[in-house]
Amino acid sequence: MSIICGVIGLVIPFLVPKGPNRGIIQVMLVTTAVCFYVFWFCCILAQMNPLFGPELNKEAMYIVAQQWNS
């Protein structure tokens, strides 16, 4: 994800063809990359060190144990 955002925000802007809209496309790309990255990064950070875990009821726990615990 970091690489994708890096490419969108830091590499592609230099490859935008010249034209009247070059500046605006560059701004768009960089802002998109920043927005996407911040959003994703917050997601990761928030789940990296959980302070509490999910509380499952009996059925859900059974299914999780069956399906997800490979």
Binding site: N49, L51, G53, P54, E55, M61
Partner: peptide, 17 residues
């Protein structure tokens, strides 16, 4: 869960980190 006696079936559980 289920190989215990019925009385001891879990009603819910928190998956603790």
């Amino acid at each position: 869960f289920f190989n215990d006696s019925v009385d001891n079936w879990l009603t819910s559980a928190t998956l603790e980190p």
